[in-house]
């Protein structure tokens, strides 16, 4: 592990017309680290993720990513070709809605194999072998690899997305509300799985969630966002147990405890 961050975001901003979605967001992310971005709906956390993931062009700011080769690239300033190539080969993006993150017209195996083919995999047997291993890793029976994702439950679809996004061994995985809309028991299983896989793969992750419990369980560090700004940042347990900002205190005090 090196002391250099894998990602350095500075001054990221995005507005939709006159509505500011993200303002001056800066943070660093180190290899193997999980960063949670929390805040209520409309706080700008999903816009932040979409800017990082190349879905939305930011208005300002820099997103400097350290590639496997050691080269540091500002993804905002890079050509679209380079940006898309890097995002494809070295990043993953688990979308909130599996319909955005999966291809529903092809089998589960094809969904997991596609990123490998996208980076040049041309051996059917190897691609299928990897897909089978990753389905197993996300606790989907490899015997179902030729089934369509639409025949899977919501939790399975999310796990399939995770397999699809980890199969290329990315350096960074973005996750947008990965447990949103799932039953509590399914959530627990998914969280445990994400926690384990992220650690085993040594991948750095940015997890957007409105659920502080998810943040507590998954994240080393946390950003608290409100009205497009980061109001507080720090170690997850520190922010949750000793929140300084009024908004963080409000969030923490609003959590239902069992």
């Amino acid at each position: 592990m090196t002391d250099d961050p894998v990602l350095t975001v500075t001054g990221l901003a995005k507005a939709y017309g006159r509505r500011v979605a993200c303002r001056d967001v800066s943070f660093e992310l180190w290899p193997g680290e999980v960063l949670a971005v929390v805040g209520e709906s409309g706080s700008g956390k999903t816009t932040l993720l979409n800017c990082l993931g190349g879905l939305v062009p930011p208005d300002a700011g820099r997103v400097r990513f350290r590639r496997r080769s050691g080269e540091v690239i500002d993804l905002v300033a890079a050509s679209e070709a380079l940006r898309r190539a890097i995002l494809r080969a070295e990043w993953g993006f688990v979308r909130q809605n599996p319909r955005d993150g999966l291809r529903f017209g092809v089998s589960a195996g094809a969904n997991v194999g596609e990123p490998l083919m996208a980076i040049g995999g041309r051996h059917y047997g190897h691609i299928r072998g990897s897909a089978s291993e990753w389905l197993d890793a996300v606790e989907i029976d490899p015997a179902r690899m030729d089934d369509l994702p639409s025949s899977f439950s919501g939790g399975m679809q999310q796990r399939l997305q995770i397999a699809r996004n980890l199969v290329t061994h990315p350096a960074i995985v973005l996750m947008d509300e990965p447990t949103g809309g799932l039953d509590v028991s399914v959530q627990a299983r998914l969280l445990d799985l994400i926690r384990r896989l992220v650690r085993e793969a040594g991948v750095a992750a940015i997890v957007v969630t409105h659920d502080l419990g998810v943040a507590r369980l998954l994240a080393d560090r946390m950003l608290v966002m409100r009205q497009g700004c980061v109001v507080e940042a720090g170690l997850t347990d520190q922010l949750l147990d000793d929140p300084q900002h009024a908004y963080t205190q409000l969030l923490v005090s609003s959590v239902l405890t069992v």
Binding site: R84, R88, R103, V106, G109, A110, G113, E114, P115, M117, A118, I119, G120, G121, R122, Y124, I127, R128
Partner: peptide, 10 residues
């Protein structure tokens, strides 16, 4: 970005 073409063959 032609990876998807092989998805059909796969």
């Amino acid at each position: 970005e032609y990876g998807v073409m092989h998805v059909k063959l796969y």
